[in-house]
């Protein structure tokens, strides 16, 4: 009788675990698949490892629950007294190693791809400040500051009395968004003017720190036009929560039009040409990246 209850509870626990994981998809609160090759690889890796872990978890916890149900004193069992099993121990050392290798292979491949910014067609320099971003389209004379949109800024004050749900894109809207062309290999050069920030747009697939005195590189190529939102992802002081990133991706022609209208614009409107000088001598090929 009592036993039966335990069986039910145990099954319920296991089911609950599966349900929780499944719920993740159902509710859509999973890592976004995003709109770049990277975000999709990150997503695929994430799902792969997650499922491997779920399977291992079900096996391990399953064994544990079987034991909890069957091997209990109230069932009148006598405890066995074995203390080793070389075979089992070898198996559960070797199998996880194999599984890990299985995970490491695609992860390595993806990483090498992500860290190689060869052949970028365009450079954008991004500088973090407490608490805003500065974007410079290299060699075009265009640059501007991007900070939290005003209505969000007013609503987010302590006891502002404004219901955040009434504010459009609360905390995820800026005054000047970063506009970029689609299907273009863009190199991002990240640095900071004060403390460390981190530039992150989930849909683009990665975040990278903006560090004072250092320039970090990353690259992206967005396949779909749209507006993508993210946030600063490294604690940078009191308004760390209030320095969003908004990227608007436009088809190349529209982008070029937009760029030419920006104040200070001096460069050619041929984006592919203007980045070439920096791109040629300063890219990191996999060999170079591995060497240092």
């Amino acid at each position: 009788m009592k036993n039966q209850n335990i069986v039910i509870v145990s099954i319920a626990v296991l089911a609950g675990m599966l349900l929780a994981v499944w719920g993740m998809f159902a509710l859509g609160d999973n890592m976004p698949r995003g709109v770049t090759e990277f975000s999709q690889t990150a997503y695929d890796l994430h799902m792969l490892i997650l499922w491997i872990c779920v399977v291992i978890g079900v096996l391990v916890f399953g064994a544990m629950f079987v034991s909890i149900i069957l091997h209990r004193k109230s069932n009148g069992v006598e405890a066995a007294q074995f203390t080793h099993s070389t075979k089992a121990e070898i198996a559960w050392t070797a199998i996880p190693i194999l599984i890990l290798i299985l995970m490491a292979v695609p992860a390595t491949r993806a990483l090498i791809l992500m860290e190689t910014s060869e052949g970028a067609e365009m450079d954008i320099k991004i500088t973090g400040y407490q608490w805003k971003w500065k974007y410079e389209y290299m060699d075009t004379g265009v640059s501007f500051i991007s900070s939290l949109a005003q209505d969000s800024d007013i609503a987010r004050q302590l006891n502002s009395g404004i219901d955040p749900t009434t504010v459009d894109n609360y905390l995820l809207e800026v005054d000047n968004a970063l506009v970029v062309p689609t299907d273009t290999k863009i190199r991002l050069l990240l640095t900071s003017g004060d403390v460390i920030h981190s530039w992150w747009v989930p849909e683009l697939g990665w975040k990278r720190d903006a560090i004072p005195g250092i320039v970090n590189t990353a690259w992206t190529s967005i396949s779909e036009p749209g507006t993508y939102r993210g946030q600063c992802a490294e604690l940078c002081g009191k308004d760390h929560g209030f320095m969003p990133v908004v990227v608007i991706a436009k088809p190349r022609a529209e982008f070029e039009q937009w760029l030419a209208q920006q104040p200070g614009y001096t460069g050619s409107d041929d984006v592919s040409a203007l980045a070439q000088d920096t791109a040629d001598d300063m890219t990191t090929s996999p060999e170079v990246a591995l060497a240092d």
């Binding site: 890592m31 990277f38 975000s39 690889t41 990150a42 890796l45 994430h46 490892i49 995970m103 992860a107 993806a110 990483l111 992500m114 981190s198 992150w200 989930p202 697939g205 990665w206 975040k207 990278r208 992802a233 490294e234 604690l235």
Partner: peptide, 12 residues
């Protein structure tokens, strides 16, 4: 620990 995925998870 999976670096490409950690680019997404990190500091979240």
């Amino acid at each position: 620990a999976i670096v490409p995925a950690d680019f997404q998870y990190h500091d979240t």
